[in-house]
Amino acid sequence: MANDDKLSVVDCVQHLLTDDMFLAHVPLEHREEAREELASLFNQLGTEALNAERRKVSLFQAGLDDSGYPYLFRLHSIVRDILTHELPPDAMEAARRGMQFAQETIQRDGGQTFELLLKQLGRIAISPAARPIDRALSRLALYHLLRMVLAIMEHQQKGDLAFVGVRDDDLDKLAEGSLQWWMEEAAADGDDGLRVINFSIAACMSRLTEHVDIFKVELARLDADHVRLLHQRKEIVAHAQSMTRRDDLLLSNLFAPLFGKQRVSISLLRKRHPMVLGDYSDDALYKQTERIKTKLSEGTPPQRTATSSLLDAAAAMEGTVRPLPSDEEEI
Score class of each variant (00 low, 15 high):
I197F: 00
L161V: 07
R233E: 03
Q61K: 14
D4G: 06
K261H: 13
R55V: 08
I78G: 10
S267A: 13
R304V: 03
A314R: 06
A151T: 13
I197R: 01
D170V: 06
V57W: 05
P323L: 04
D170N: 09
I266D: 02
K216N: 10
G122A: 05
I126T: 03
L285Y: 05
L229G: 02
S252F: 03
L229D: 07
I197E: 02
G299N: 03
P70E: 00
P89W: 01
T47H: 10
G111K: 08
D248L: 02
A62N: 02
L7P: 04
A240T: 07
R272Y: 09
D20N: 12
D90R: 11
G190Y: 05
R263E: 14
D65P: 10
A91R: 14
A91T: 15
E104T: 11
L41R: 13
K158V: 10
R195T: 13
H85N: 15
P89L: 09
D172K: 09
Y280P: 04
Q232M: 05
S252Y: 03
L324N: 04
R221P: 00
L269T: 08
L117G: 11
E36C: 09
A220M: 07
E48S: 09
S281G: 14
R135M: 03
E86V: 12
Q112L: 13
M183F: 00
D213S: 14
V212P: 04
L145S: 05
E93M: 12
D327R: 14
L59E: 00
P257H: 07
K216R: 14
S309R: 07
W181Q: 11
E32M: 11
A315W: 06
E176K: 01
H211V: 00
E184W: 10
D248Y: 11
L137M: 01
I124N: 02
C12V: 14
D247Y: 06
K234W: 06
A316K: 08
P257F: 08
L142E: 00
L116H: 12
M317R: 15
A203N: 12
R131Q: 15
V13T: 05
E33S: 12
A187P: 06
T47N: 10
R31W: 04
N3Q: 11
P323G: 07
P274T: 03
K293H: 03
V217D: 13
Q103M: 06
Q232V: 04
I152N: 10
S265R: 09
